[in-house]
């Protein structure tokens, strides 16, 4: 994370854009659940997609993660942690759901 002088990525627009996008990506899932607009399956899918996009919005507009400007070490740290989280959480869910069916716990 460089503390360079204000640049494109770090100006007012970045934070305001991020705010508006995040607002919309929050309103959509909340709205469709609160007003009961979809059945469970599709609702979960939209919640998941909106969440992932909103995380990316936060990373881009608030944390200024940018493939061109962010130092490589930072990107690698994020990617490696993300990869491990995927294995740990994915693996845990696979294992525990499998155990649920086999061991009825």
């Amino acid at each position: 994370m460089q503390d360079a002088a204000p640049s494109e990525t770090r100006d007012l627009r970045s934070y305001l854009t991020g705010f508006v996008l995040a607002l919309v990506l929050t309103a959509i899932p909340f709205g469709l659940v609160y007003f009961d607009l979809l059945s469970v399956g599709p609702a979960i899918a939209i919640i998941a997609v909106a969440a992932v996009i909103q995380v990316v919005v936060h990373l881009r507009f608030f944390l200024h993660i940018d493939f061109k400007r962010t130092p490589r070490d930072d990107l690698l740290a994020l990617a490696f942690a993300g990869f491990l989280i995927f294995i740990m959480v994915g693996g845990s869910l696979w294992i525990m759901i499998d155990l649920y069916y086999r061991m009825m716990i």
Binding site: Q2, P71, D73, A77, L78, L84, I85, M88, V89
Partner: peptide, 29 residues
């Protein structure tokens, strides 16, 4: 030193992310 501190903090955040990820997994289970 500035860069080292910033990067070190970023690495710490990654470890915190792992903690939250495992708490999420526990919640789902």
């Amino acid at each position: 030193q500035k860069e080292e501190k910033a990067f070190g903090f970023w690495v710490y955040l990654m470890t915190d992310a792992v903690i939250f990820a495992l708490l999420f997994a526990t919640f789902i289970v």
